[in-house]
Simulated scan of single mutants.
Amino acid sequence: MPEPIAYTALEKGAPVTTSTGERLGTVEHVLQDASLDLFDGLAVRTHHGLRFVDANQVTSITTDGVATSIGESEVEGLPAPEGDAVLEADPEQYQGEGLTAWWGRTFKRSHWLREKE
């Protein structure tokens, strides 16, 4: 039996399912306001691209993944995530062996990341 977990324990790549148990996609990023300990929702990688799943659409978060109240026919109509927190790493910019490359990877300098379009 899958055990319930906190949203803060969710990892990138965790499976997200529809209300009927079909695979909706995978967790890309948890959207939260850490100062308020407030779960806002998820950025989910779907076959329609990156989509936002609101916190009130999440029915459970367990060690097996995230279950939602979203039907398969609703997935394409989900909005894309918005805001500054939606970033995607550019793996080609994480290349290099020098000290500058290490610092860029360690502190995630803004020029080492690009905003997802």
Rank of each mutant, 00 (worst) to 15 (best):
L87M: 08
G71Y: 04
A43D: 12
S19A: 15
Y94I: 03
R114P: 02
P15S: 08
A14Q: 06
T106Y: 05
D54V: 11
E72P: 15
A89W: 10
T68H: 07
Q95C: 01
E92M: 00
E82Q: 01
W112K: 06
G49R: 06
T63W: 05
T63V: 06
G49A: 03
A101I: 00
P81A: 13
S60N: 13
L99R: 12
T17E: 03
A6V: 01
W103C: 10
A34N: 11
A101P: 00
D64F: 11
T59C: 08
E22N: 13
L87A: 07
T26K: 12
W103P: 02
A14P: 00
G13D: 12
A67Y: 03
K116S: 05
I5A: 02
R51H: 13
H48G: 03
Q95P: 01
G83Y: 02
S73G: 00
D64K: 10
G25D: 01
E115Q: 14
T8N: 02
E117G: 15
P79M: 06
P81C: 09
W112A: 04
A89S: 03
V66Y: 07
L38K: 15
G13I: 07
P79R: 12
E117I: 04
T8Y: 01
A9F: 10
L38I: 00
L42H: 07
P81Y: 01
T63Q: 14
L31N: 04
A6R: 08
P2M: 14
